[in-house]
């Protein structure tokens, strides 16, 4: 905070807006960096092996030796949580990046060319959207067999539709803008117009959506793992940890609470970042 004497000269409303936008940016980025560091240095910061079963300390509450307690196999919850960060960040990242790329490219192409190309893509999207998201995910994973790879493939096959629709709608508007017509009249190639002129202007909304989508993917990953189709035990992953703690939720609350909290905090970080990104890119203008 600046001294009273200087605040008189600083643009008060502008300052608070600046702080507001950059505050969420710094908090969001801070949370994300924190988790990334933990994931990278998991072996250094985790006090125990995440799958090591210590028979004598089953279901003990938080203590000095085990700050977050232990689960029914006597595994240290803090260590599992720390190693789980690696898997969950990976899920959020890979689960978002492929749908984002596929959806953006297909949406751009559909919006730009219109006509029959657009009609085909839109009908495919309609078909995908006709099924409940999780049901479709489960069906694909059931065919491919349980595991993270199947989860990523299923995400890529189903998740792109939101990005495609988002980008297509933007492109439909932008392709009639004067600068797009100017680009056509100057003889630039279609690819250039699509990806150099239209896409950079259309993508801001999708970039913000990536952040909130990362939260959804994280929760989906947790749900899929919870159902036993994602990450397989004994691997530490937050969703599985919540699932494993479920039978003991009345007697050993710490098993479900801490992984649940971790998911919430990471999700919070992502959405703060999304908000700040939206402000910076001028999506809300």
């Amino acid at each position: 905070m600046s001294a009273p004497a200087t605040t008189r000269f600083s643009p008060s409303a502008g300052l608070s807006r600046w702080l507001g936008s950059h505050l969420s940016l710094s908090i969001g980025a801070g949370i994300l960096v924190f988790f990334v560091l933990i994931a990278i240095f998991a072996p250094l910061v985790a006090p125990y092996d995440p799958v090591l079963q210590m028979a004598d300390v089953r279901l003990t509450g938080p203590s000095l030796a085990h700050p977050l307690g232990t689960d029914n196999f006597g595994r240290d919850m803090l260590s599992r949580l720390i190693y789980g960060t690696r898997i969950d960040l990976q899920i959020a990242l890979i689960g978002v990046i492929f749908p984002f790329i596929i959806g953006t490219v297909l949406g751009t192409v559909a919006g730009f060319f219109g006509g029959i190309v657009d009609a085909i893509f839109m009908r495919i999207i309609d078909i995908i959207l006709a099924f409940p998201f999780l049901v479709l995910m489960l069906a694909i994973i059931a065919i491919l067999g349980p595991g993270l790879t199947s989860f990523y493939i299923a995400m890529a096959l189903v998740g792109w539709v939101s990005y495609a629709r988002l980008v297509r709608a933007q492109i439909l508007v932008l392709k009639n803008s004067d600068y797009a017509i100017a680009a056509v009249s100057l003889g630039f190639s279609r690819t250039r117009i699509m990806f150099r002129h239209l896409l950079p202007n259309a993508i801001a909304g999708s970039l913000v959506f990536v952040m909130s989508d990362a939260v959804l993917v994280l929760l989906n990953g947790a749900a899929i793992s919870y159902l036993g189709l994602g990450v397989q035990p004994p691997t530490a992953e937050w969703g599985i940890m919540v699932a494993e703690g479920q039978p003991f939720v009345t007697t050993a609350w710490w098993i479900t609470l801490f992984p649940g909290l971790a998911i919430v905090v990471l999700a919070f970080g992502f959405s703060l970042l999304g908000d700040a990104l939206g402000d910076l890119l001028g999506v809300h203008e």
């Binding site: 803008s177 004067d178 600068y179 017509i181 100017a182 680009a183 009249s185 100057l186 002129h197 950079p200 202007n201």
Partner: peptide
């Protein structure tokens, strides 16, 4: 070459 009506919209904002 063409010059457009709405000068702001005729230039790529990025």
């Amino acid at each position: 070459a063409m010059v457009f009506q709405d000068p702001l919209n005729a230039l790529n904002p990025r």
